[in-house]
Computed example of a mutant assay.
Amino acid sequence: MQADYEVRYKGFTLSPIAVDEGNYYTAMVIIGAADGEIRASGALGQFACALSARRYALAYGMADVDHREPPMPDWPMRIAVPRAGHRSKA
Results as ranks from 00 to 15, higher is better:
10 K>A: 07
11 G>N: 04
11 G>W: 03
14 L>Q: 08
15 S>R: 08
15 S>Q: 13
17 I>C: 13
17 I>P: 12
18 A>F: 02
18 A>G: 08
19 V>L: 10
19 V>M: 07
20 D>L: 04
20 D>A: 05
21 E>P: 05
21 E>N: 10
22 G>E: 06
22 G>D: 01
23 N>F: 13
23 N>W: 12
23 N>E: 02
25 Y>G: 12
25 Y>N: 05
26 T>E: 12
26 T>S: 11
27 A>D: 03
27 A>S: 13
28 M>K: 07
29 V>K: 10
30 I>K: 11
31 I>H: 03
32 G>R: 00
32 G>S: 07
32 G>Q: 00
34 A>F: 09
36 G>A: 11
37 E>S: 09
37 E>N: 07
38 I>R: 06
38 I>V: 15
43 A>N: 01
43 A>H: 05
44 L>Q: 03
44 L>I: 07
45 G>V: 14
45 G>Y: 12
47 F>S: 04
47 F>K: 09
47 F>L: 00
48 A>L: 10
49 C>H: 15
50 A>P: 05
50 A>S: 15
51 L>N: 11
52 S>F: 02
52 S>H: 03
53 A>T: 01
54 R>I: 09
54 R>G: 04
56 Y>F: 15
58 L>D: 06
61 G>D: 06
62 M>V: 04
62 M>P: 05
62 M>G: 00
63 A>F: 06
63 A>Q: 06
65 V>P: 08
65 V>A: 05
66 D>W: 03
66 D>T: 02
67 H>S: 02
68 R>S: 09
69 E>F: 05
70 P>N: 12
72 M>I: 14
73 P>G: 11
74 D>S: 08
75 W>D: 14
77 M>I: 13
80 A>W: 10
80 A>F: 09
80 A>E: 07
81 V>P: 11
81 V>D: 05
81 V>T: 15
